[in-house]
Nucleic acid binder design. Structure first.
Length: 278
DNA sequence: TGCCAGGCTTCAC
DNA sequence: GTGAAGCATGGC
C-alpha cells in the first residue's frame, strides 16, 4: 500500500499529507492519521474496533493486488509502466453519497480545485467533530444540503454544479435515492440509477461505481483516459481482456498519465494502433 | 493572462 | 443517434 499514490490518485479528496510524512483522511465521520512505519507496515491511529469497522474496508485491505501485474498483456508497455509507477495504489471503498457529490463537483475541475471545493463544502456545512488533534468537519449529509438555497452553495466555488448538488441532496433526503439499497443492484442497473441524478452522466456514474461500490469493471473515461486511449491504444482500450479489473487498471493509467514521468515521454509507449496481442 | 480541468445538459440536425 | 455550444471557477 502506498499512501502517497492513493492520496494523489484523484479518487478521494480528503486525504492529505501532514508534515512528517503521515497522512490524514476524513471519511464516514471519522478522522484517521496513518503512517508508514516499515516496508509493509503501517500505524493506524485508531482503536482496533474502528479499524475493523471503518478503515479495513475503506482501504480494501482484504483484497490482494499483487496478481494484477500478471494479468497485464505482456506487449502492453504503457500498462506495465503505469503499474510500476502506481505501485501500492488501491481502490478505496468510499461512502456513496460523498463520492457522488464529490464527483459531481469534479466535472471540468482540476484535482486541486476539487479538493478546495469539497473542503469548502465541509467547512461550511459539515458537522463539527473533534478528536485529539482538534476539530474537523464531516462531509455534510443529504438532509443538511437539501435544506440550503442555491446561493448558500455558491460560496463553495461549485459554479454551475451547485444546482446539481442541491438536486441530488433533495433526491436523497426525500428517499428518491437510496444509496444503501443501490448496493444490491447489478452493474447495469446501478449505473442507470446513478444517472437518474441531474448532473451525473456516464463518467461520474462510473467513478461512483468504482470508488464507492467497488465495481471494478466500471471504467471511467475522462479527458486524461481519453487521451491515453487515443495515443496508446489507437482509439479503443481492450476492456474485454480485463474482466473484473479494468477499472483498477484505469486508475493506474489515470495516475500515470498525469505524472511527470509519463508526460516527459516524447512518444507513446505502445505502438500506434495497439489493440492487444491476441 | 490565458489555458485547462476526473463532463453534463440542451438543442440542432 | 450524433455533434456542438454553453457552462463558472480556480490553479498553474
Amino acid at each position: 500500500m502506498s499512501l502517497a499514490n492513493i492520496a494523489g490518485s484523484g479518487q478521494c479528496f480528503r486525504m492529505t499529507r501532514q508534515d512528517g510524512g503521515a497522512y490524514r483522511v476524513i471519511a464516514f465521520g471519522k478522522r484517521l492519521e496513518i503512517r508508514q512505519t516499515g516496508e509493509r507496515e503501517f500505524a493506524f491511529d485508531c482503536s482496533r474496533d474502528e479499524f475493523d469497522r471503518v478503515w479495513s474496508g475503506y482501504f480494501d485491505l482484504r483484497t490482494d493486488y499483487s496478481p494484477l501485474a500478471g494479468r497485464i498483456d505482456p506487449g502492453d508497455r504503457f500498462l506495465a509502466a503505469a503499474l510500476r509507477h502506481g505501485d501500492g495504489l488501491r481502490i478505496l471503498r468510499q461512502d456513496p453519497w460523498e463520492t457522488t457529490v464529490s464527483f459531481i463537483i469534479s466535472q471540468r475541475k482540476s484535482l486541486p480545485c476539487i479538493r478546495s471545493a469539497v473542503e469548502a463544502l465541509c467547512r461550511r456545512f459539515g458537522d463539527a467533530l473533534e478528536d485529539r488533534h482538534g476539530v474537523y468537519r464531516a462531509f455534510p449529509a443529504p438532509g443538511r444540503i437539501a435544506g440550503l438555497r442555491k446561493e448558500d452553495l455558491d460560496a463553495c466555488s461549485l459554479g454551475y454544479r451547485s444546482g446539481y448538488v442541491l438536486s441530488a441532496a433533495r433526491m436523497a433526503a426525500s428517499g428518491g435515492l437510496d444509496f444503501g439499497r443501490m448496493a444490491a443492484l447489478d452493474d447495469g442497473d446501478l449505473r442507470r440509477e446513478l444517472m437518474r441524478i441531474d448532473g451525473v452522466g456516464p463518467k461520474i456514474a462510473d467513478c461512483v461505481m468504482l470508488f464507492a461500490y467497488a465495481r471494478t469493471d466500471a471504467f471511467p473515461v475522462d479527458v486524461w483516459i481519453d487521451r491515453v486511449i487515443r495515443t496508446e491504444y489507437g482509439g479503443r482500450f481492450p476492456l474485454e481482456r480485463y474482466p473484473g479489473c479494468a477499472g483498477i487498471l484505469q486508475q493506474y493509467a489515470f495516475h500515470y498519465a498525469r505524472s511527470r514521468d509519463y508526460r516527459i515521454c516524447e512518444k507513446p509507449l505502445n505502438p500506434e494502433g495497439y489493440r492487444g496481442a491476441h
